[in-house]
């Protein structure tokens, strides 16, 4: 057990606050996955919330354990570069196989241009 993590210092408080904020955004992302009507809107909720939620959690961890800073920064960079890419590939694949879109959908220029299932 590392006692320094439980000491009440400004940096520890900031770290705890950032961790809670990060967790809150992750929770909202999870709620979005449940509430959103189709796969594209779900991916939107998932990508944005997990990116900011994880970055805030990493920043909070960096305040609690400054000696981990460099590695936490690297994890953050990996998330920033990989998260949007995986979402884009998922969305492209979902569109290509013609997964059902929400009836609220207004336009689909991609289907118009490629002839993929509208």
């Amino acid at each position: 057990m590392d006692a320094s993590l439980y000491a009440v210092t400004p940096l520890n408080l900031l770290g705890a606050l950032l961790l809670v904020l990060g967790a809150a955004f992750l929770l909202l992302g999870g709620l979005g996955l449940v509430r959103m009507p189709d796969v594209f809107n779900r991916i939107q909720a998932g990508t944005k919330a997990t990116t900011l939620g994880t970055l805030l959690s990493l920043a909070g961890m960096g305040c609690l354990r400054p000696d981990w800073g460099l590695k936490l920064l690297l994890i953050g960079l990996f998330i920033l570069f990989t998260n949007p890419l995986s979402s884009q590939v998922l969305a492209r694949a979902a569109h290509r196989v013609g997964l059902k879109k929400s009836p609220l959908t207004q336009v689909d220029r991609l289907a118009e241009d490629t002839g993929e299932a509208p």
Partner: peptide, 23 residues
Amino acid sequence: LVRSNLRLANVVLSPSLPLNPGI
């Protein structure tokens, strides 16, 4: 990114789920 998350929170937490999606 922060603005994006606040807007998403706003949509997800509204009981009416105000969506108007499209590509």
